[in-house]
Design a protein around this nucleic acid. Structure first.
Length: 494
RNA sequence: GGCAUCGUGGCCGAGUGGCUAGGCACAGCUCUGCAAAAGCUUGUACAGCGGUUCGAAUCCGCUCGAUGCCUCCA
């Protein structure tokens, strides 16, 4: 019996705008595709939030016992700068600026991307395919769409014919747009265009002679359009119809809308059962933007080398902070909010450290079984991590009360609590305990600390408070906090 | 200009018709040699205006504001 058979998961489906019970196509298996980064610059914090949200979803699905194939692509072919220019793509442009080969840029920022996500403790996806590795598959899809009559070729480029597609299908169903409205509200762009209609989008773009990234195709040398790689790779690895497609809210239109159109044009069926969209991250109430300076990179947060925050924040703290908000809500990042999260995170971790040493009784004063179910209820309700965390703090409260011997817990309940906390905190939320130094150093530190605590307690017994306070205050200054409890003194590193 | 989402106590952030969210901060108490840590107690908050309802933060309308998309974007 797998957990998913007893825990009923509901997810917010962007396609219907409703919370729906999650039922995979094949019982026990989940196929999930998430739009990955374009690797032409350092990954930014908003990106991290999106990928972290889907990491949490991936982790919970696995925890429920599903066998998950999680595909997250790397966009390394470069998207068009815009429709009006001569087709120079982002990666090629950056390469010229920095005097690098395009694939050198790709490599550099792919490495940065992986390193940053590792710091945030994201699991690697099952497959991480690249756009440049799937040019052939993309060309095959274009051929098929052309054959079905939903695309046309002009001057070595191929465009998707949105108007024709809309006659038999519903273009705009994901983002709640109507093609007629879009046509009515089209901005007049002066640039000349091969497209029959401004709403049409490129499947294949002809490469100008100076364009570096180029591949041969039936329509001449060129490169694939912006939306095609996701259709090609999701179809290849997950099938024509799969369970979950995720990405940032900003990709809903046009990117995901176009993916639906391409897949429906090519395969005749809707590609995805559940569309999940993660919401944006703002900084001090405003959107992050490099041009206004309202922006911060993950590495700058970790090092404290920035003008926005008062101190450095550990990746785990930032992860905890982000999971305190629901993934479908806009989250605002600020110094105050991070400091509050840091303290809460510390409190949670402290409780996790002491839980295993709690004394046991024959009975419990608290209904731990229903507490455990309430943790699942939170996650089953569209991955409601803030409510889960509230439940975890309920446990923290109980644990601290048990430590003070103000309440009782049975042996059986204690192992339930330990297991459940570990499952949710480490496996599902993906939080990490404070990185301790290596074991030898830890032992040395513990030896020194027990000596100091001993000396201090002797001084206290002799009412030599000058000595005891000196020890305490100077340790505090070093970031070591002494905790005087009923059964002696312990220490924690802040 | 169009489309969409949202506006919750000092701060962050759940909740979506009647029943405690939670974290941080603040105050009081317990503990302590004094603290810290921990525990306990305390907050009539739901942008504004109007409507529906026995009852609305929660539904509807309008106003104001924010964010996202409409152009590459997580």
């Amino acid at each position: 019996m797998q957990l998913y058979q007893e825990q009923k998961l509901k997810v917010t489906n962007s396609l219907t705008g409703k919370k729906e019970e999650f039922k995979p196509i094949k019982e026990g298996y989940v196929g999930m595709y998430v739009c990955g980064p374009t690797v032409y610059s350092n990954v930014h914090l908003g990106n991290c939030r999106t990928f972290m949200s889907f990491d949490m979803i991936f982790r919970y699905l696995k925890h429920l016992g599903y066998k998950v194939r999680y595909v997250r692509n790397i966009t390394d072919a470069g998207h068009l700068e815009n429709d009006a220019d001569d087709g120079e793509d982002k990666i090629a442009k950056k390469a010229k600026l920095e005097q690098l080969e395009p694939m050198e840029v790709v490599q550099r920022y792919t490495v940065d991307f992986h390193e940053t996500l590792q710091k945030f403790n994201l699991l690697a996806p099952s497959i991480e395919p690249t756009a440049t590795g799937h040019i052939i598959e993309q060309i095959e899809i274009i051929k098929e769409i052309l054959k079905k009559g939903y695309a046309y070729e002009v001057n070595g480029s191929v465009y998707f014919d949105v108007v024709t597609f809309n006659k038999s299908n519903d273009y705009g169903k994901l983002s709640g747009r109507k093609l007629e409205d879009m046509i009515a509200n089209t901005r007049e762009l002066t640039a000349q265009n091969d497209k029959k209609n401004p709403q049409d989008f490129a499947l294949w773009k002809k490469a100008e002679p100076q364009h570096i990234m180029r591949w041969p195709s039936p329509w001449g040398d060129g490169f694939p359009g912006w939306h095609l790689e996701c259709t090609a790779m999701s179809t290849k690895y997950l099938g024509e119809t799969f369970d979950i497609h995720g990405g940032g809210m900003d990709l809903k239109f046009p990117h995901h809308e176009c993916e639906i159109a391409q897949a429906e044009a090519c395969n005749g069926e809707s590609p995805v059962n559940y569309w999940l969209h993660a919401n944006m991250l703002t900084l001090n109430g405003k959107k992050m933007s490099k041009s206004t300076g309202n922006n911060i990179y993950p590495s700058e947060m970790f090092s404290g080398d920035n003008h926005i925050l008062s101190k450095p924040f550990a990746p785990s703290v930032v992860r905890f902070f982000m999971l305190q908000a629901h993934y479908t809500s806009i989250l605002d990042l600020s110094d105050e909010a991070l400091i509050a999260s840091e303290k809460g995170y510390q409190k949670l971790m402290d409780a996790l450290k002491i839980v295993e040493d709690l004394p046991v009784s024959t009975t419990s004063d608290f209904d731990w079984s229903s507490w455990k179910q309430s943790c699942y209820d939170a996650m089953n309700d569209d991955f409601n991590t803030p409510v889960l965390i509230a439940q975890l703090f309920e446990a923290v409260k109980q644990i601290n009360s048990l430590k003070e011997e103000k309440s009782k817990i049975s042996e059986e309940d204690k192992s339930l609590v330990v297991d459940t906390l570990h499952n949710f905190v480490f496996d599902v939320l993906g939080l990490q305990a404070q990185q301790n130094a290596n074991n030898a150093q830890t032992e040395t530190l513990e030896g020194i600390m027990s000596l100091l605590i001993d000396i201090r307690n002797n001084a206290r017994a002799n009412k030599d408070f000058a000595t005891s306070d000196k020890i305490r205050d100077e340790l505090t200054a070093l970031g070591i906090q002494l905790n005087d409890g009923k059964d002696g003194t312990s220490f924690s590193i802040k």
